[in-house]
Nucleic acid binder design. Structure first.
Length: 213
DNA sequence: ATCGGTACATCCCCTGGCTG
DNA sequence: CAGCCAGGGGATGTACCGAT
């Protein structure tokens, strides 16, 4: 295949369809229409001589070739992205950028406000928005650029997801001395704690963030 | 069995870039 | 400047699934 005769945008479309699991959702994240994505997929199918995705009910399932292509494609797209980023340069004081950070409500109270305060001084023109996090879609949303980053508990994710430890939290139970239902060893999995109405309070402490929710 | 909703494919047209 | 070609989008067809 001659790369000079190949529209490299087709690989952006391919990656979006693979990540989103469908043409329509790929169109949404790329801000194009469904027929446009369908046309692009058709052109890529012609180029590689493989359907790449086959319909399985209402889903598009990647073919073995698509499974083989997705890794190198993502690597290449990341390289392009990094190269363009380096060309643009980055100065936090003047950068005008927008980031979407996925997090759950509990995390939001602890991390988001400190982050906004930090950015106000370090990167005043950078906008961040907090997006409700769907754990089942973290990898897909990060790959598609729907999320710039996500803050959550440690989860088993793919190797291409870069992660950093932000804080450690401890769970404690507070009850009056001699409470009849809180005796002996207490666990989260079973036992008396499950029968009680409890208030869940999370405390986070880290070098970068401090907060209580 | 039928109907409505969802999703992908295809047809057709428009637009913009390239070339002679 | 005209003709060609590729890409994008609207409209429509087709297939599938779930509810009734």
């Amino acid at each position: 295949m001659n790369i000079s005769r190949t529209d490299l945008n087709l690989f952006v479309v391919f990656e979006a369809i693979y990540s989103q699991g469908g043409v329509t959702r790929a169109a949404e994240v790329l801000h194009l229409t469904q027929p446009t994505i369908s046309h692009a997929l058709g052109r890529l199918r012609d180029r590689v001589g493989d359907p790449l995705f086959v319909r399985h009910g209402q889903r598009l399932v990647p073919t073995p070739l698509a499974d083989r292509m997705i890794g190198p494609t993502r690597e290449a797209l990341k390289l392009f992205q990094r190269t363009l980023g380096e060309l643009d340069g980055f100065d936090p004081l003047t950068a005008e950028m927008q980031f979407s950070i996925g997090m759950r409500a509990l995390m939001e109270a602890s991390f988001f406000l400190p982050l906004v305060r930090l950015l106000n001084s370090a990167a005043p023109r950078v906008m961040v928005s907090s997006v409700p996090l769907d754990r089942r879609r973290i990898e897909a949303d990060l790959s598609a650029g729907e999320l710039s980053a996500a803050i959550d508990i440690f989860l088993p994710l793919g190797e291409d997801i870069r992660r950093e430890h932000l804080s450690t939290s401890r769970t404690v139970v507070v009850a009056r001395q001699g409470h009849p239902q809180v005796v002996g060893q207490i666990t989260l999995g079973s036992g008396p704690i499950n029968r009680l109405e409890i208030a869940l309070v999370a405390c986070f402490k880290s070098p970068n963030f401090q907060g209580v929710s």
